[in-house]
Design a protein around this nucleic acid. Sequence first.
DNA 1: CGGACAAGCTGA
DNA 2: CAGCTTGTCCGG
Length: 560
Amino acid sequence: MTARVVQVLPDVSAIDRVFDYEVIERDDPRVRIGSIVRIDLHGRRVRGWVVAEGAGAAGDVVLKAIAKVSPGHVPADLVDLSSWAAWRWAGKRRSFLATASQPQPVVTFGRGAPKSDDQLRESTPEWARAAFESPQSVVRLGPAIDPWPIVVAAAERGPALVLVPSLARVDLMHRRLREAGIRGVTVGARAGAWVACDGLASVVVVDAHDEVYTEERAPTWNAWRVVAARAARAGVACALTSSTPTVEQLDWGTLVETDRNTERRGWARIEILDRRGDDPRTGLWSSRAVDAIRSAGRTLCILNRTGRAKLAACAKCSTIATCEKCAGAVHQVEAAELICGRCGTTRPTLCLVCGGTKLKLLRVGTARAAEELSALIGAPVAEVTGASAAVPDTKAIVGTEALLHRVGRADLVVFVDLDSELSAPRYQANEEALALLARASRVVRGRFGDGRLLVQTRQPDHPVLLAAAANDPARLTDTDRQMRQDLALPPFAALAQVSGVAAPVFVDGLRGQLGVEVTGPDNHEAFLVRAPNHQTLCDALARVERPIGRLRVSVDPVRA
DNA sequence: CGGACAAGCTGA
DNA sequence: CAGCTTGTCCGG
């Protein structure tokens, strides 16, 4: 009788290859594809995953035995998906299998059909039913429209996987499911894309445009792409919901819209404050914004710059304040001190040219903005950034966009300087700016309350603002799509960003690949790799040998 | 990753 | 030439 042999992928980051091991007890049912085992490898005992049955190209080496079978198991379909994901995001299988093996903060609530079928079906609107008519759909909902009916519709079809953008919303969703008596729904955040689901019948991704679905560290995989692939492999429907679907998502799936009025009610009234006529010395706050803040209730003022100022000049001689060591622009975090944004050198607030100690703050941050607003409205104004512990109870708060995630409800949201978002050097900048306005619309409860948004801008005719003011994201999609086509950007091309000390050697290898174009390095020493599609791009990235040394490959980079 | 082993350096 | 560091290789 021949020995039973399986292939094992070790859980060791530097080893991206499989090894053959013998299964001593041939019929051990615990050893199967996806089993988590311990193996002896090169003198130490490490964790690994059984990824295939039967011997690989082992040659005539003497095989070692699987030392131990650990608890836990990755279903075979996810083992297979991990190979695809490793190709798709130019990463190692190990990182995906590790995610799939983690105890995840997901909630699987029972099994079976919803409590009262008829009652639920009656309250299911047409658009929620339509979400599963096509195998791939994108349901566009006004920002303040609750996607819950889609979750109910998914549960009716059988075991469902639902992704939401944060752990807090996993809890919230779980509570609602329990209260509604709905069973058979697995809820997770980004890593939930890798959770086991028996008999999966449908997949829903809530707020699919949200960038938290993208892993920041390489491999830069994206949860909606993973569950979309997973659904396609399982032959089940996948529905994305979003107030502002991305061009890539609309390229992927069939758009499902609600009726125009329902969508409109989900968006807040948006007022554009055209500041082109204002004297630049007026400062950050237009008088119209100050009046609105005075008469409103809870107000959130969004400014995506922390500290007091990102750029300053001497009040006496107008010289831009720079670092004495590296000549980078210095930031003012606190009034008395300047910090170089590039090398971190600090010095007291002092002009290097004339010795002046008074500065004009040119690109004011949240700290200074809060001080100014407080003086203008004659009331205390708190400052909240991503690093802040608690949200204070002042009437007006100035903060970065983190504020929109931390405060559930407001009466007025003011975008102090949306122009800095609109001109951000990323091709997704428009989509992100519109998504920000959508998030603010949700915070003021769209047209369901009497909240509103105020946008200070010098670009009142910008497509983002026209789309937002019309409560019609499609208007931006059309212009953005054209721009992407003209500039050969996704979804009309596939991109990867390559950085790290080994990047120059690696991209040299890529230059010889058919259909692949390399540009760079940019000022961060990163190269951009472009191909007509992911097949070409990812095949090339997989084919070219990786040189030793640090190398980061970001497929579908966020900052490009 | 981390153990093994070889090559290189140092001091007696 | 022992004793140590540094570098390269490779795992079943």
